[in-house]
């Protein structure tokens, strides 16, 4: 009799459990800030880096008053477009490959390999982007030329 009671209690508790959660779960969870940021930075990086579509990437995803921390560029989206289109024009065989994207709240880090020509060892770049109101509003970066030799066999990427 006790066993039956325990078994019935367990079964009922599972049923109660399921119904409690069904009643408390919201119909559709709002996306987290991290997922909102990811939804901007991923297409931006693909357009800008992988596809080399500088203007389209910036006009779609970057705010006009974009704050710039890269020491060779002035503030602002239009300045950035001009500078980056300039680099691409000077190196028409330039390639850029996104290696990984790390997103946390309103910040993202994009690790990429940029090569002015196919024969060039290229540069390792990490861009850090801050998103606000659906647009990229601030940018930091760190850039390092890939050296000729390495003490390990793993590439910088």
């Amino acid at each position: 009799m006790k066993k039956l009671l325990a078994a019935a209690a367990a079964a009922l508790s599972l049923a109660a459990c399921v119904s409690i959660e069904a009643n408390e779960a919201p119909a559709a969870a709002a996306p987290s800030q991290t997922e909102v940021t990811r939804g901007i930075v991923t297409p931006f990086s693909d357009l800008f880096c992988n596809q080399g579509k500088v203007r389209e990437a910036f006009m779609t995803h970057v705010a006009p008053g974009y704050i710039q921390h890269n020491p060779v560029a002035a503030d602002g989206r239009d300045t950035a477009i001009a500078a980056l289109e300039g680099f691409r024009a000077a190196s028409p065989q330039m390639t850029c490959e996104v290696k990984r994207i790390i997103v946390d709240g309103n910040l993202a880090a994009v690790h990429s390999h940029v090569k002015p020509t196919p024969e060039h060892r290229g540069f390792a770049v990490v861009d850090i982007l801050r998103v606000e109101n659906g647009m990229i509003v601030e940018h930091w970066d760190v850039i390092q030329p890939v050296p000729e030799t390495s003490r390990n066999n793993n590439t910088m990427f």
Partner: peptide, 29 residues
Amino acid sequence: IFRVENGRIAEHWDVVQPTPEASANPHPM
């Protein structure tokens, strides 16, 4: 950049750049 596996850091990448004297914008790197 770190990759964590089973509670420990298993892989490390980095990018290192000396900061220049002058900047085209009023912000630090």
